[in-house]
Design a protein around this nucleic acid. Structure first.
Lengths: 217, 217
DNA sequence: AGGAAATGATTGAACGAACATTCAATGGAG
DNA sequence: CTCCATTGAATGTTCGTTCAATCATTTCCT
């Protein structure tokens, strides 16, 4: 009856890993609602149901907590496309499409998480923290899309397509459509964004149209 | 000799209009360096060479100052394309190109001002202020590009081009390329951005290629 | 196994720095 | 003299960080 290890026992004390994740989740929720400057340690710990002092125990400082939240999102995003884009059984266009779909996957592309990305983009100080922490992921993705485009150009003999131009355009589309989904959700959605990016790729690589545009509309 | 109205007289007192513009300029400079949350009234007035109390005299509050700075940028931006896009002597593609060129005009597309845009995008509270203050400008531009695309489609008989898709893609490219220019200036520049957007339009409207891509590369 | 020390996790009050805003006093122009 | 612009010290609030005290769990000894 007084079983202490019951399934619903809230566990007064828990492992650092669990507490760190709880705090990261609460930080993401708080940044979405109040922005980085409005995210106080009081709010984060309240959202997590923990006490104020825990943040500086499990993290060194507020900045360290913010960076941990950013790193968590960056890793979650990268995991979504890095596997498919290196699988040997997929052709270049399928890999490229996998990267695009990862960009607008519901787990990544939702108001809660988009708000965090743009919170870091919004101030020079945090933007530089972002570059140091996750800039390599962006560069890696751009390099991969550029290489995939080069392979597709070879396959299809697209002489008028410059892989570096396409890769830059894709990077621009990813961020810009994210921002518009966040700011104008009534005009931009995950679905229209996916359609627009794949539509662009269809114009670049029309002979691959059956691959890149299947299942749309 | 003791001329009081000399050219270099710093003018201890000035008209509200001048003071307001001084404070707006200083605010833009401060937001670029320190972000919105790092923009204190002390820093703004110090940057402007004025005293602390002047802000709440010429503006109601810090928020009102921020909104005035945003409105100033939005108007400056809109002025750059609204005229050309409604001139009767230009064909649709020339108008469309004028809008694209305004987006990456040096007066608009520089680190100082891009930083302010994304400062407002970075937090829910400021993002909503942006929507109320400048959201209509974005909607207006998207409507115009959509209408221009429809006219170009009629001209060229482009049956496979959907104007709403192109207008959404352009909006995405504008914001996303801005962000990448701000974050990765070594990989993205005004020049490459202009080239990439016009390159996209060339793929949509290949029969207008001579118009939209002239003078590039 | 029983219990006591040791280790680790948790709490929230207290502190000092930074901030927006107020306002009484001062300055200068007309 | 009157009115408007200007000044900057003072005020009250908010926030990150610290830390001594408390609680829970593990370890180790008998």
């Amino acid at each position: 009856m007084s079983a202490p290890v019951s399934s619903k026992a809230p566990a007064r004390t828990a492992s650092p890993e669990i507490r760190r994740q709880q705090l990261i989740d609460a930080t993401i929720a708080s940044i979405c609602k109040f922005g980085i400057s409005g995210t106080t340690l009081n709010r984060v710990t309240q959202e997590a149901g923990l006490s104020l002092g825990l943040v500086n125990f499990h993290f060194k400082s507020k900045d360290a907590l913010l960076l941990a939240a950013l790193r968590y999102l960056a890793d979650e995003h990268r995991d979504l496309w890095i596997n498919k884009s290196s699988r040997g059984d997929l052709d270049p266009m399928a890999k490229l499409r996998a990267i695009v779909e990862a960009q607008f996957h519901p787990r990544i592309c939702n108001r809660r998480k988009l708000a965090v990305w743009f919170a870091f983009f919004g101030e020079k100080r945090h933007r530089e923290a972002y570059r140091k922490s996750s800039g390599e992921v962006d560069l890696e993705r751009q390099r991969i899309t550029m290489r995939l485009c080069a392979e597709i150009v070879d396959e299809g003999g697209y002489e008028d397509v410059a892989p570096d131009e396409v890769s830059r355009t894709l990077e621009g589309l990813f961020d810009g459509l994210w921002l518009n989904i966040l700011t104008y959700p009534d005009r931009f959605s995950r679905q229209t964004a996916l359609q627009d990016v794949l539509g662009y790729l269809c114009r670049c690589f029309p002979k691959h149209v059956d691959i890149c545009c299947e299942g749309l509309e």
